[in-house]
């Protein structure tokens, strides 16, 4: 009978890892705390750099799950380590055993209301990148009504020690460039500003997206972080920043402000780390055994981790890690069985 492998988290990473493990002859069990599989991908409309539909990717990932057991709305009560591996017990009393455990519990988006000065949840016309994706997906929104001037704010909750996040969230710059172009497609007469500290367009074809945004769509990039947002008497927003390339303070009146919320560790990471004795980095993400040579392996035996639970990642990076982790689990089990450890 095929050996069970427990995967905590049913987002893109967990799903891809499960499929690889199944193909390697195991019987993976995905435990997902949300009501549905798919993670943050469910909330997104299109993916950079080419604008592939998230729905399409999600469909691909969530289909062909034959041979994979999955449970949603799961609440994990305890995880115990034994000589034979791990026992995960749910709040319903059900337990699962597995010789190895894979953590793919991902990330959460920075709660934008924590940056009080931007007024998310207070000023009607301040929305987040996730809200905008919902608008793209649904095609309607109570706030977005033919905006003439739109602002994008990069690094909301990223590179900001004031809110306790020193790290760069890596994917928001590319997302902001993508979303700005999409808005210009929808509202060709709108003027769109993007406030950035540094533009970190690291991946293949991302620089081309930026060039297109500048040249084809005329997105105006302003180097400077938004310091404060307020609401004017007509309900529009007033944004303060410095144009740091001109060394001048700037005041901009706009109809819609999109906050590019960053990537922070998922709430469950801290408690899982405590139960499993995993070290957390200063940024709150899991510390792997070796960031260069063993990014998918924990210090303790039989424990593996992949995807955004070890730091911000793009979807293709996450999927590659999922496959890598699955193969490493396979190798680990083979070695352990041969040597008689398990």
């Amino acid at each position: 009978m095929a050996e069970n492998i427990i995967i905590i988290g049913g987002g893109p990473c967990g799903l891809e890892a499960a499929k690889t493990l199944r193909d390697l002859g195991y019987a993976p069990i995905i435990l997902e705390k949300k009501q549905e599989l798919g993670g943050h991908l469910r909330k997104w409309d299109r993916l950079f750099p080419e604008g592939v539909q998230a729905k399409q990717v999600l469909k691909e990932l969530t289909s062909g799950l034959k041979g994979i057991e999955w449970h949603t709305s799961v609440d994990i009560e305890t995880i115990e380590k034994s000589r034979k591996g791990y026992t995960v017990t749910l709040s319903t009393g059900v337990s699962y055993n597995s010789p190895a455990l894979l953590l793919t519990n991902g990330f959460k988006l920075f709660p934008a209301e924590k940056k009080e000065e931007y007024g998310y949840g207070i000023y009607d016309k301040v929305i987040t990148n996730a809200d905008l994706e919902q608008y793209f997906a649904k095609g309607k929104d109570n706030v977005i009504k033919k905006p003439k001037t739109i602002g994008f704010v990069h690094c909301v909750g990223s590179r900001d020690e004031k809110v306790g996040n020193r790290q760069c969230s890596k994917v928001c710059c590319a997302t902001a460039v993508k979303q700005a172009c999409e808005m210009k497609e929808l509202f060709p007469d709108a003027t769109i500003y993007s406030f950035y500290m540094d533009l970190r367009l690291f991946g293949r074809n991302y620089e081309d997206m930026y060039l297109t945004a500048q040249k084809k769509y005329g997105i105006r990039y302003i180097r400077g972080r938004v310091s404060e947002v307020s609401e004017d008497i007509d309900g529009s927003l007033i944004v303060k920043a410095e144009d740091t390339l001109l060394c001048k303070p700037l005041r901009l009146k706009i109809d819609l402000l999109v906050l590019m919320t960053g990537i922070v560790p998922e709430n469950s990471s801290a408690s899982l780390a405590q139960q499993l004795n995993i070290e957390l980095g200063e940024d709150g993400f899991y510390k792997p055994k070796d960031t260069i040579l063993e990014p998918c392996m924990a210090e303790n035996n039989g424990l593996f981790m992949a995807g955004a639970c070890t730091g911000p990642k793009t979807i293709p990076e996450t999927l590659s890690e999922a496959r890598a982790a699955a193969v490493q689990i396979h190798n680990y089990l083979n070695k352990s069985w041969i040597s008689g450890i398990l």
Binding site: L211, K215, D243, R251, L252, K253
Partner: peptide, 24 residues
């Protein structure tokens, strides 16, 4: 403070039309 509202920027638009690289 530079106030960027109701910015009448037809000259820059004309320039960008003549020189698409102006925004690059």
């Amino acid at each position: 403070t530079m106030k960027i509202e109701n910015l009448e920027n037809s000259k820059f638009k004309a320039l960008a039309k003549l020189e698409p690289d102006a925004t690059k």
